Amino acid sequence: MAAPLGGVLEAAAVVRAGYRLPLRVEDFGAFLDAFRKDIRGIVGDVRCLGSFPEAHMRLLDELGWTRPHEVTYASLLLWAGGVEEVAVVPRDRHHVRRTVERATDLQLARLVQALVFAADPDDVHRGAEAVRYVVERCLGLLLRTGRDEFATTMRLWSVACLPAYLSPDSGASAASREKVRAYAARLYD
């Protein structure tokens, strides 16, 4: 849960800075200050959704994702899954934008997967609403506020994460696969 949320936060800071890299320590700090209430809300919602103890949520801070730090092109490449070529200096803002979009697509899909895994299997309706709320708040930080953005994120999750997990030979229990299928159906409604 912490890793994909950290990727979303770093990508959102780059988006809000006009796709300028590297993002200096003070620039990321300014992003955190400007959106502190939103970030705390997201972290609180994730904590409630998964009934996580406070210590689990402190991992975001311990890993540095909620503290000022430099954001580099190399970190965006990692969040994007290494799809782009490794370059010390990105060619232009369009290149950075494409890398950020790939990073956010992948990390949002992973975040949805983590949220669904953490959600209550006995209350899919309530859990799906909580997943949707967290994802929509993250999309807002990323300035992805179009009416189809949530549906696009769900589609990306369904192709990036679900086939491997729902496969009979995945090692996931039948009950877990049933839960994930129920959440997928509800999130698509």
Results as ranks from 00 to 15, higher is better:
residue 105 D to S: 13
residue 91 R to I: 13
residue 86 V to W: 13
residue 101 E to G: 05
residue 59 L to I: 11
residue 96 V to T: 08
residue 32 L to S: 11
residue 130 A to V: 04
residue 86 V to C: 06
residue 94 H to D: 14
residue 95 H to W: 11
residue 61 D to M: 01
residue 61 D to K: 04
residue 72 T to S: 15
residue 103 A to D: 09
residue 123 D to C: 09
residue 133 Y to A: 14
residue 108 L to Q: 03
residue 69 H to S: 12
residue 135 V to R: 01
residue 132 R to Q: 12
residue 136 E to D: 13
residue 60 L to Y: 08
residue 70 E to F: 05
residue 49 L to Y: 03
residue 122 D to E: 14
residue 72 T to P: 06
residue 60 L to F: 14
residue 99 T to A: 14
residue 45 D to Y: 03
residue 80 A to E: 13
residue 74 A to V: 08
residue 150 F to C: 08
residue 46 V to D: 02
residue 124 V to P: 04
residue 56 H to Y: 14
residue 37 K to Q: 07
residue 46 V to Q: 02
residue 74 A to W: 07
residue 44 G to L: 06
residue 100 V to N: 01
residue 104 T to D: 06
residue 85 E to G: 13
residue 105 D to F: 02
residue 81 G to P: 07
residue 97 R to D: 06
residue 39 I to G: 01
residue 83 V to H: 11
residue 90 P to E: 08
residue 149 E to G: 04
residue 113 Q to D: 15
residue 57 M to E: 08
residue 95 H to I: 01
residue 142 L to V: 02
residue 92 D to F: 09
residue 40 R to P: 02
residue 61 D to F: 00
residue 100 V to W: 01
residue 111 L to E: 04
residue 92 D to N: 15
residue 127 G to W: 04
residue 56 H to A: 14
residue 41 G to R: 00
residue 90 P to I: 01
residue 141 L to C: 00
residue 115 L to A: 06
residue 74 A to M: 12
residue 42 I to R: 01
residue 90 P to V: 06
residue 96 V to C: 08
residue 45 D to M: 02
residue 82 G to T: 14
residue 86 V to A: 12
residue 63 L to P: 00
residue 88 V to A: 13
residue 58 R to T: 07
residue 116 V to F: 14
residue 130 A to N: 05
residue 142 L to T: 03
residue 32 L to I: 13
residue 79 W to E: 08
residue 118 A to H: 05
residue 69 H to F: 09
residue 63 L to I: 08
residue 99 T to S: 07
residue 108 L to H: 03
residue 143 L to Y: 10
residue 121 P to G: 07
residue 122 D to H: 10
residue 128 A to N: 05
residue 128 A to V: 11
residue 86 V to I: 13
residue 72 T to M: 10
residue 58 R to N: 13
residue 88 V to I: 12
residue 148 D to I: 14
residue 135 V to Y: 03
residue 113 Q to A: 15
residue 134 V to S: 04
residue 61 D to G: 09
residue 64 G to R: 07
residue 90 P to K: 05
residue 148 D to V: 14
residue 95 H to N: 00
residue 145 T to V: 12
residue 71 V to N: 13
residue 67 R to W: 00
residue 132 R to D: 05
residue 80 A to S: 15
residue 86 V to L: 10
residue 111 L to Y: 06
residue 115 L to S: 10
residue 108 L to C: 08
residue 63 L to V: 10
